[in-house]
Structure formats: C-alpha cells, structure tokens
Design a protein around this nucleic acid. Structure first.
Lengths: 260, 260
DNA sequence: CCCAATTTGTTCGTATGTATC
DNA sequence: AGATACATACGAACAAATTGG
C-alpha cells in the first residue's frame, strides 16, 4: 500500500526529482489502479484520504486528479458517496486526445484515404456472415437516411456525414478493437473536415451514387456471408472516393476535435 | 479578447452549466490557441494574467493548466521569462494517451498483427527509393544490433526489442503522419508486451532468422527503389511473425504505457 | 558568487455547493 | 428539513526555480 514516505521527493531518483508533485501523485494513482486490478466504477481514496496518504496539500491532490481526468481515466462526483471514480477511457475521449496530436501534424486528406483504403476492406471482410439481423437492419437504416438525391447544399452535407456514419457503425461491430477504433477515427476526422471545409460543395452526384450503391451491395454481401465480395466492394468504394479526393492535397485545417 | 464575463457560469447554456471551472478555462485556452494561430513555443498569459482574465482563483487556473498539460498541449517553466507554453503534442505522449484507451479494451496479440499486416507492407512500398543514404545506413545499423544469434535469454529479449525498433525507425520516415504513428504505436505496444509477458521465452531461432533475412532484403529493396519487392518482403515477414504469434490469443496484460 | 526580480509551485484556512440519508 | 460527507472554489502567504545583474 502507498505510504507518504514512498512519495517523499527526497526519495526520488535524481532524474525524477524535478517532476512536480501532482505528476508524481497521478503516477502513483495509476500504479494503484494497476496493482489493485481496479476497474471502471471503482472508487479512489477521497481527497482527505489522499492528503494523508501522500502528505500533500489539497491543491496538489486536486491538480493530480485533473491530470487523470484529462486523460479520461477518472471522473468526479460531489456529495456523500461521491469522490474520484475510475473510468474506462471513452471512445470519444481517445478520439479527441489523438486528434490533439494530429492537430500539429499537417495531415492531408490523401493520408486519411490511404489508411481507409487499407483498413476498411479488411473490416468488411471480417464481418461477413458475422452480423446479427438487427445490426444489418441498422446499417440499412443508415443507408436509407441519404438514399434520395440531395436537393440542397445542407442535404448534400448531411449525406456526406450520414455516409460516414455508416462506416462508423460498421467500425462499432469490429471484433478487433484497434481496427474498429481507427476506422471510426478516420471517418470522424473526415466528417469534421468535410463540414468545416465545405468539401460537400459543389455537390457530387457520382460520389453519392457510388456510395449508395456500394453500401447497399456491401450489406447484401455481409448478410450472405460473402467475405471476398465484401472486401472487394469496399475496396472499390474506397478507391473511388479516394480518386475524387485526390486533388484535395490541402493541409487539414487546424482545429481541435471536440469530445462528443 | 476573452473577458471575465464570457466565462461567468450564469452565461453558460443550460447543458453546460455543470462543467467545472477548470474545464471551461481549459476550453477557452484551446480556443485562444486556435483563434490566434498559436504554435509550439508560444507563451500563454501568466497565472496572474489569467486570474484577471477569467476572474477566477489561482487554484482554478492551475487546475485548468494541468488539464492541458495532461493532454500534452502545454508545458510549464518557472522563473523570469517562464510561464505556460504551447507545446506540440509529442509522439510519446500521444502513444501513451492512446495506450490508456486500449488498457481497457481487451487487446489480443492477433489484433495487433492483423493491423501490422495491413499497414507495414504499404509503408515499405511507399518508402522504396525515397530514403536518403544515411537513413538506409541507420536501418542497417539497427539490423546489425541483433545480427548474431542470441546466447542468453536477455539477448533474445533484446533481439525482439531491437527488431521492433527497426520497424519504429521505418515508421519515422513515413510521409503519411497517421500511417507512421500507427505503425510505431503497434510496434511499441508489441515491444512492451513482449518484455512484460516474456514472449521471448522460449527463444525462437526461426523467427529471428526470418527477421534478419527479411529486414536485410527489405533494405536492399528500399535502396534499389523496388516498391513491389519491398511490399512483398514485408508482407511475407508479417505473415510469418503473425503465424508464430497466432496461438498468443491471450488478452494483453493490463498496464499503462509509460511515456518514454 | 550572491542578490534581486519574476514566475510557477505548494500550503493552509475558510467558505460554498451538492448529493445522500 | 437537517445533518453529513464529499468536492469546488477563493485568497493570502510562503517556497522553489530561474534569469540577469
């Protein structure tokens, strides 16, 4: 169990001496989580308890909790029975944090499509014959949301967003958590960019048609359990969309992804 | 410019009223960064200044800065000329933060290899003929580090780590920032797991041999600008390694990735 | 080498807000 | 409604780090 002594700054190795107290407390809490096999929902010691444990002031402890909160690892509740609780890092938080990184990385649209072209076909193939009826119906409802041609620019924008929503839905069903997360991340960035940069303007009828067509055939292939067909339909779709975005070599605009 | 009034809690829309003050300050600072096109190295207003600006106490401001610090967006320096400085989210920080997410996701070794098999061949292909001499030499030096068979378990472990280091090096040269980051991330997780789970035990001579062989041929292909060869060598290598890990269906052990 | 100025780091006491019983 | 247990927030004071004279 953690004692105040362990965290005494004078005990710290030389190269760690300068680390601030909140940072050290946050690390200690992480260790606590790992060593005690704590899971989401578990309660951490209260502020007062931590003040004793670490021999540090309330402000320092609070700063430490903020460090963990920003990482999505901890949430806070006031009132009796309240305190700091361990939280599973949410999809949305992870997406936003990774987005912060790419905020500085001069992403190009083509980069995103290069990834999508590698990942999405494999996801499609892996899901063939694996999805329950309600999932397939949900996908069909996603498609239905933009199945009639857009008659206004706003509708065109919504079509783009809804088309990407289909891909995010697919990503949720992924058996491979990394694969699912990444596909969702790509679609999410793309959706942001499409809206903020007005990439839906001018409307592109062919892209819409290809999207509807491919997604419809894809659902059929998924239902039929035809893995190869699913892969090649998705490949075709990605290549098509990529070609249309190919000239979008612009740097992705700088803005932070909001946690939704 | 931001004024205290803007952040008065009573001005906030209903659904945002409960957001804590540090959270709101952190968001305001992010907006400040975006709107003023601030870049890494730029200095944010000092504590005292922010206390005025937001009309909040020192503790609250500091908690807000910790929120940004944890995301890797801000660093702090004491002394004259010190203060809060904008910082480009580092590779290592992004890796650690994303690692937090997967800490809760029941990752399997096979999942990681599925991704590597998709991504690494494309990276290899895209680098053929593009790397300057010093980069190729660096890769060769990475290979040299484990070119003689391991004679002890520690050496075997180092061989695994060094082999993965080769892939991380390759990732650094990627033109596509997302692709590079992801490959590095996979190799990094794998390296962690290999060490912490002793996956290098028992030693696997064939895996080592295949690694050396493939990497040597890969560098030759990269130097010769043979894109297709580079892709197929990497594919072969990944498939081989994947097969050997195939039975490693275990859940990845729960531990946080340390920022290095 | 020391001293002074500047800026963050940390503590403590107090008061307030919030949810539960 | 009142008591309790918890986080949230403020303000004043002092400590530590860094820079420049």
């Amino acid at each position: 169990m953690a004692t105040a002594k362990e965290f005494d700054e004078f005990d710290a190795p030389a190269h760690l001496k300068r680390r601030s107290r909140p940072l050290r407390v946050a690390d200690a809490i992480k260790d606590l989580m790992v060593e005690n096999d704590m899971v989401a929902g578990d309660r951490l010691p209260s502020e007062t308890k931590m003040i004793e444990m670490f021999g540090m002031s309330k402000g320092t402890i609070r700063e430490a909790m903020r460090l963990l909160e920003a990482q999505g690892l901890v949430e806070t509740k006031t009132g009796p029975g309240g305190g700091f609780f361990i939280r599973q890092v949410s999809h949305e938080r992870a997406r936003a944090l990774l987005g912060n990184y790419f905020y500085f990385q001069n992403l190009r649209i083509a980069d995103i499509y290069q990834l999508r072209e590698m990942l999405e076909p494999e996801l499609a193939a892996s899901l063939a014959g694996k999805l329950p009826a309600h999932a397939l119906e949900r996908l069909e409802r996603d498609i239905a949301r933009y199945s009639s041609p857009a008659t206004s620019l706003e509708e065109e924008r919504d079509h783009h967003v809804n088309s990407l929503r289909f891909h995010m839905r697919l990503a949720k069903y992924a058996d491979n958590a990394i694969l699912g997360f990444l596909i969702d991340f790509m679609a999410s960035i793309l959706s942001d960019i499409t809206v903020s940069r007005h990439l839906y303007d001018p409307p592109n009828f062919d892209l819409w048609k290809n999207g509807i067509d491919c997604q419809t055939r894809l659902v059929a292939a998924l239902r039929g359990g035809d893995s190869d067909a699913a892969r090649s339909i998705m490949t075709e779709h990605m290549k098509y969309a990529r070609r249309l975005m190919q000239n979008q070599e612009d740097i992705v605009p700088k803005r932070f992804i909001r946690e939704r």
